[in-house]
């Protein structure tokens, strides 16, 4: 444990970065998932095609490939764009934090789109008809009837998506984000104790996934509260 002296703060700040990436990517993931699900459920043929292309592409290519393509691709694009205005600029890139969060959100969002679509279709039509019969407006039906029901159906899969998201944050160290994995690599390089360092990083990730799993369990319990005893 002595070798870890002096590295704790690196690991701590790395974990904070993971948490930040996770929260930013979570918001984006939900957004991409909802847009994808809405497009899949829409009546427009083009929107349906685009949404299924989105899911097929991001489910079938390695996460690392998507990450590198978005990071280096956007860097080349931006560098070229900025050089049009100021030829003295050598290199422009999106910070790894944003490129990374965007990429993993895009990947996991493609899975979430399918989950949200399934949950939307899984809501009992009788519930919606009942709301309509009670004279509740379409908008209020969506907010007060459809969303709470969807939420319950989508939760288990959504928990898995959050786990993928937290695990994918490790990849962002490859494009140079200062997170736990990056701290572990630095520490491993300096102390020549790579096993210890990577185990610490692994434990931090295990901690994050445990927290997510437990929170999802609690949320599921809460969401299914009204069903207890009715079975």
């Amino acid at each position: 444990m002595d070798v870890l002296t002096g590295w704790w703060d690196d690991f701590f700040w790395g974990s904070i970065v993971i948490l930040q990436v996770f929260l930013v990517a979570l918001v984006m993931m939900v957004l991409f998932g909802l847009i994808g699900a809405a497009a899949k459920l829409s009546n427009s043929r083009i929107a349906q095609k685009l949404a299924s292309a989105y899911t097929v592409i991001f489910r079938g290519t390695p996460e690392l490939l998507v990450l590198l393509l978005i990071y280096y691709g956007s860097a080349i694009f931006l560098t070229n764009l900025f050089q049009l205005f100021d030829p003295s600029i050598k290199f422009v890139d999106i910070p790894p934090f944003w490129a990374g969060s965007f990429s993993i959100a895009l990947i996991v969002g493609s899975y979430a789109a399918e989950t949200f679509r399934g949950a939307f279709l899984g809501v009992d039509p009788g519930q919606i008809e009942a709301a309509r019969a009670l004279g509740i407006s379409n908008f209020n039906t969506f907010i007060y009837v459809r969303i709470p029901e969807m939420w319950r159906l989508a939760l288990p899969a959504f928990g898995n998506h959050m786990l993928s998201l937290i695990k994918d944050t490790a990849l962002i160290s490859i494009i140079g984000l200062n997170e736990t994995m990056y701290a572990a690599e630095q520490a491993a390089g300096t102390t020549s104790k790579p096993f210890t360092m990577f185990i610490v990083a692994g434990c931090i990730y295990l901690g994050f996934s445990t927290v997510i799993t437990l929170s999802v369990m609690l949320l599921e319990k809460r969401a299914n509260k009204h069903l207890v005893g009715s079975r």
């Binding site: 786990l163 490790a170 990849l171 994995m181 790579p194 096993f195 185990i199 692994g202 990730y205 996934s209």
Partner: peptide, 16 residues
């Protein structure tokens, strides 16, 4: 299942 596969690869390759 709770840790990234990248860490598992690094533990085995660099750590062992």
């Amino acid at each position: 299942r709770g840790t990234p596969i990248l860490i598992q690869i690094f533990i085995i390759y660099y750590g062992f």
